[in-house]
Design a protein around this nucleic acid. Structure first.
Lengths: 213, 213
DNA sequence: GTCTATAGGCAGATAGAC
DNA sequence: GTCTATCTGCCTATAGAC
């Protein structure tokens, strides 16, 4: 009953798993094509270059995630009162929807974002900003509305701390899950990590400004 | 008046700057030796291998930072009441002391930790745990004492979120500093980032547990 | 200790047969 | 569309002259 998957999709599926685990530069086309059971040359035939493959992998997720997030944020924008917690809760469902691309889609997407940020300085970040800049802007606006006591710059920095905590948690999630299992005998899924993360980042964002303590 | 620096130290200095900016695997011995103005073969003569060079770079910082942090934590341990904020404030001075290794030492060390975590899965992490496991344990104990309402597992996870926010902020600090300059016309030093970070991570760690909201 | 020269391996990309 | 074979370039590491 194995579905007949096109070579192009086989490559995308193998690539995203390897990219999420080892990063973009650390993953070779030889590994990808071996895992996908396709010929080495087919990557360049279907995508043109490794760089284009990376963008295709990310775009498959972003094109699903970003519009869904934007819709949630728009909805929240009409509320009279907005809390930080409500803003971050907007991420839950769009993130969960990514299982339709891959069972581990939510974790994969966050890992990809992390590596994109750390590795390809500027390149993919600029791409995202151009393509989805309005979503980011809406997000910052909402967070500022939820925290009028902070300056716009505070919100900017804290949003990046949030991003850091999130992608780091996902990139090192496998190791952390194993340690948690060994030390606390607890099985923690990728979604459980999100549940643990959201109170943390909401608490961090709501914290008073340095000078006010 | 240019100090006469040994070849070994020239390599260490060039290596740590490149490692902190691009990561370990992305930095070649050719780049390092070119920046250091030494011969390519001298790395293997002085350090034996690239892996050993990486460890030497990290060890130079950890051997200064970890004992200093441990002393601060020990001091705090005798207090009757401990707040999360006090625990994180223990990091400030040991971190600042790293300027004695390099002017940008604090930022470099945090970047190195970030790449060590993301790239060399297990290897350097195990090394750190073996060498400085007692410091980590003291840290977790203090944070748990400051937050008795949390489970030990909550503290474990939140400590890693903290680590993520911190190293991510440093790894992408250059890009973020440029954006902050462009958008808010504000010059933010590496130390300023720490000032912005500490209220955030303290607020996140003190947040109530998910089920208590 | 420092150099040149090179070994040996893996990377991305492509030409051209089928 | 898919394959084999190969080009070109970069990497770490080392042998051996000085």
């Amino acid at each position: 009953m194995a579905a007949r998957i096109s070579t192009k999709d086989k490559i995308l599926n193998a690539a995203e798993a390897l990219f999420a685990e080892h990063g973009f530069e650390q993953t070779s086309l030889r590994q990808i094509t071996a895992d996908a059971n396709v010929n080495l040359a087919s990557v360049n035939y279907h995508f043109g270059s490794k760089k284009a493959l990376i963008q295709a992998v990310i775009a498959r997720y972003s094109s699903l995630f970003m519009p869904a997030l934007d819709a949630k944020l728009k909805q929240l924008q009409s509320h009279p009162q907005i809390s930080t917690r409500e803003v971050f809760d907007c991420f839950r469902e769009p993130l969960r929807e990514l299982v339709h691309i891959n069972k581990r889609g939510p974790a994969i997407y966050l890992s990809l974002l992390g590596y994109a940020y750390a590795e390809i300085q500027g390149h993919l970040r600029r791409f995202t900003m151009q393509e989805y800049g309005d979503v980011i802007l809406r997000l910052v606006t909402l967070l500022h509305a939820a925290n009028p006591q902070l300056t716009a710059e505070d919100v900017f920095w804290r949003l990046h701390f949030v991003l850091g905590a999130t992608v780091f948690a996902q990139v090192s999630s496998q190791a952390l899950q194993e340690i948690a299992k060994a030390d606390f005998n607890s099985d923690v899924s990728a979604e459980d990590i999100i549940d643990k993360l959201i109170p943390f980042i909401a608490g961090g964002l709501d914290a008073p400004h340095e000078n006010e303590i």
